[in-house]
Amino acid sequence: MLLKRLLYCTSLTLFLFLAGSLEPTLFAALFGHFKPHLLLLLVIYASLYRTIPEGGFMSLLAGYFQDIFSGSPQGFYMLSFMLVFFTIKILSQAFYVPGKKLEVLSIFLGTLLATLYGLVILSIFTDHAAHFFVVFLRSALSALWNTLIGYFLFAGFHTFDLWVGKRDTKKVITGDARS
């Protein structure tokens, strides 16, 4: 049990570092301003399949990493990711039935929500200007990439969850979502 927990924590940390290494380099070179967000995908997965304390902490950590690798004000992505986490968590408790279609929809909406919250936070806490239309257009294209990558990544996450005995995905998804 302890070993599996250790493996789980190590994998999570490795994923954060991997995302932090891949997004600004490989993804930036391949997709430019429309690059997919691995860290945001982790937040969306956590909001669908983790409890509030665990998923919330994961989202906080993902936001912190995003803040480190970004020129954003400290706390910007932490807050934005937390808001995405809670929004999807609330929505999923009301409407989510585990399945690929809703998973994909959650990823798409989650990406757009992250941008929306980001712009709101930007306008409240900083004097930074933003070209809303362009930012949203980029976000929509980025959401498409996220959806495509998320489709496969989430399948990997499910398998990993079962492998580390984190939880019986199907059982807990239903339990978490409905409880």
Partner: peptide
Amino acid sequence: RLIIIVVFLILLPLLFLSSGSKSR
């Protein structure tokens, strides 16, 4: 417990952000 965790999760980033700790 749950309410405290939720408040903590929201307050922590807000604290970072409002304190302007990005002294870049």
